[in-house]
Design a protein around this nucleic acid. Structure first.
Length: 700
DNA sequence: TATGCGTAGT
């Protein structure tokens, strides 16, 4: 009697656990992690299945560390617990951790082997994946062959994939589809179509993959034709074609298809929404969003990201607050938006509230501080960051370098255990930008000794250093290094050579490089025009501009900086004014501060100071230091003390720490006999603690 | 009821 009662109680408890486990899985699968966790914590009895379900739920939501903690707490781990933990590591790209678990587990089944093969294959470690497959004792399951085939195919090794497909004992539809997906994702559409025709069996996945292949190849007609032949298209087939029309901007046809769909799910709605948002059809998007029968976190994120991109940060924030989900993507999108608008406090607010932060997130916030010139804050955050990656270090180095603090940049660089090309290039280009060209070249030599990782960017910086030093012979050496390294065929390299030769006064050699280039791009033309302009050959610069137009290359903003400065150097006032006007009228380019600086310089040289000043006052954008500097320079030549004083004040506001501005104004005062003013200026320099930027003496 | 290989949306 008592025994029967006890058995009954135990059975009731078991079925209660069973039911709770079902609910736990349901919550986890519908994305309700917090609710799942609450249920799990409140369960009076848990079995291994409960732990395994919770572990997978945590892993699926990016909480790898929590999943691992739970794994370590499981009282009676079974094979599924080990497999689930390996899957979690694999999904997060933690190959070494997966391998460690795999080696430590007490027994292995088909799942374990398939997971390990898949883990290596997804990490691109095809050799290790194959070794694992070959090590499987006894009969291998179909899934593990398929994992290997998928690995080969996704990495473009189609022959290996097909060979294994032929060798395996019992290929199934997944095996065939695994090859097909490799072909379609790698844009091998012709071979994919051929393979598709030869497949002994096809299911909906095969048809949908082929559809996707045509969409990716941009062949919407072929996709639509195939769609007509799909025996009974399912919602994925419809969505694939719909997405094709949306991505191609063919929104009318997309909407027609959407309206014709026999069944729509949240994905169909999201694709249609994305189509409108891609084209900035905000009204349509809002209408669709309000009509959606259900919205998931992707629907909200799509909408919020679009608002962020459109610069509507307040609307994006309001929407984020209304969102009933917790979406990392939506929050980080808004954070990005804030950082781009330099709203650093709002960005930091989101960052601090994030429950999970990945390296990208930390690096974004750090580079946000750098972007706002708040280097101390960037450094503090960098020091707090738990797992710094190369990007974190490089961001900080570039930040200090661009701020002129080369001593700090180098200090951080030297603390790095490992460096990549970006680390070296940040330091080298930092030296060049700060006028420390010898140091740049010195570091190039160190880089060659440490590792041969120089790329076109390295050479571009070094060539620029040579140009600034007018070190023609060293420049020629870089030219030959560039030839030997093979980067010469890169248009970036060719363009930096053009600039270097031009800056060394060798405009003919610059022209020769230009003529020998395989394909001149807009940057090449700009470099040549600027080269002629800075060599005082304004007329020739303008004729290169004409040549460029004749070649059908459309000038951009940079082109006009070169052209306007050419006019300025050559004293072609009316020509310059005409170009400045044609920029907006003919080419719909909005002038930026640099163009205004050129125009001020142009008018200033001709003594037309009041016109220059009027131009500055009429600017649609805030004049920068270059503009005021140009005006100040012109005032000096033409002895206009009053305007000089005004321009200088503006300049001091913008660049309070730049000595040369103070010196320039002091000289203007002195030249016009105002010795008191000159003396005052020198005192001001001392008072404001303005000093020359520190060099690197002693730190290398 | 929990873990593996192939298809759609940020």
């Amino acid at each position: 009697m008592a025994a029967a009662k006890a058995t009954g109680v135990a059975a009731a408890a078991t079925s209660a656990v069973f039911r709770s486990n079902q609910e736990l899985t349901r919550l986890a699968r519908s994305g309700q992690l917090a609710a799942a966790r609450r249920l799990f914590d409140e369960m009076p009895h848990r079995n291994t299945v409960s732990y395994n379900a919770m572990l997978s739920a945590l892993a699926r939501h990016g909480r790898l560390a929590d999943a691992r903690r739970l794994f370590d707490e499981i009282p009676r781990r079974n094979l599924v617990s080990w497999n689930a933990m390996i899957a979690a590591c694999s999904d997060h790209g933690r190959v070494a951790d997966a391998r460690e678990l795999f080696d430590a587990m007490p027994a292995r089944d088909d799942f374990s082997w398939t997971l390990m093969v898949s883990c290596y294959a997804r990490a691109g470690e095809l050799k290790l994946a194959r070794e694992t497959l070959d090590r499987i004792p006894g009969k291998k399951c179909t899934a593990c062959y398929n994992a290997m085939i998928s690995g080969y195919a996704k990495n473009g090794r189609f022959d290996d994939a097909v060979t294994l497909l032929r060798e395996m004992p019992a290929p199934d539809i997944v095996s065939w589809n695994s090859v097909l997906v490799g072909l379609t994702r790698n844009e091998k559409i012709v071979r994919a179509a051929q393979f598709f025709d030869e497949m002994p069996q096809r299911d909906m996945v095969s048809w949908n993959l082929m559809l996707e292949g045509y969409v990716r190849a941009g062949d919407l007609n072929a996709a639509a034709g195939l769609f007509e032949r799909v025996p009974s298209p399912n919602v994925v087939s419809w969505v694939t074609l719909l997405n094709g029309y949306c991505r191609a901007g063919r929104i009318g046809e997309a909407r027609e298809l959407f309206d014709r769909m026999p069944e729509r799910n949240v994905v169909s709605w999201n694709v249609m929404l994305g189509g409108y948002l891609r084209l900035s059809h905000m009204d349509e998007a809002y209408r669709l969003f309000s009509e959606m029968p259900d919205k998931n976190s992707i629907s909200w994120t799509t909408m919020i990201s679009a608002l962020v991109r459109a610069g509507k940060l307040q609307e994006a924030k309001d929407m984020l607050n209304k969102m009933p989900f917790d979406s990392f993507a939506a929050k980080t999108a808004l954070m990005h938006g804030y950082l781009q608008s330099k709203m650093i406090d709002d960005a930091r607010h989101i960052f601090d509230a994030l429950e999970v932060r990945d390296a990208v997130c930390w690096n974004t916030m750090i580079s946000g501080y750098v972007h706002c010139g708040m280097l101390d804050e960037a450094m503090v955050l960098f020091q707090q960051m738990p797992n710094k990656d190369m990007v974190s270090w490089n961001t900080l180095i570039a930040g200090y370098a661009q701020d002129g603090q080369m001593r700090k940049a180098v200090g951080i660089f030297r603390k790095m255990n490992q460096r990549n090309a970006v680390s070296w290039n940040s330091v080298i280009s930092g030296f060049v930008q700060n006028g420390l060209c010898f140091e740049a070249l010195q570091y190039f030599l160190l880089m060659r000794r440490d590792a041969k990782m120089a790329d076109w960017s390295t050479y571009a910086s070094c060539l620029s250093a040579c140009a600034d030093l007018a070190a023609l012979q060293v420049g020629r050496q870089f030219h030959s290094l560039l030839v030997r390294s093979g980067y010469i065929s890169d248009s970036f390299a060719g363009n930096s050579l053009i600039s270097a030769y031009a800056k060394c006064g060798r405009i003919l050699e610059a022209r020769q490089i230009f003529d020998e280039m395989a394909g001149q791009d807009i940057v090449s033309w700009n470099a040549l025009i600027d080269g002629y302009a800075s060599n005082g050959r304004g007329t020739e610069a303008i004729s290169v501009f004409r040549e460029m137009e004749a070649n059908g290359v459309r000038p951009d903003e940079v082109t006009f900086v070169g052209v306007l400065s050419a006019c300025s150097h050559a004293g072609l006032i009316d020509e310059g004014l005409r170009f400045f006007n044609s920029m907006t009228k003919e080419y719909s380019l909005q002038p930026v501060a640099e163009h205004y600086a050129c125009m001020v310089d142009l008018l200033g040289r001709a003594g037309r100071l009041s016109e220059a000043f009027k131009l500055v006052q009429g600017m649609q954008i805030q004049p920068n230091a270059g503009v005021w500097g140009a005006l100040l320079g012109a005032c000096r030549v033409h002895k206009n003390d009053e305007l000089a004083q005004f321009a200088a004040e503006k300049l001091f506001e913008l660049e309070p720490r730049k000595t040369s501005n103070y010196v320039l104004l002091s000289n203007i005062s002195a030249e016009s006999g105002k010795w008191d003013a000159a003396e005052n200026m020198r005192t001001l320099i001392k008072e404001r603690g303005v000093h020359k930027p520190p060099g690197l003496a002693g730190s290398t």
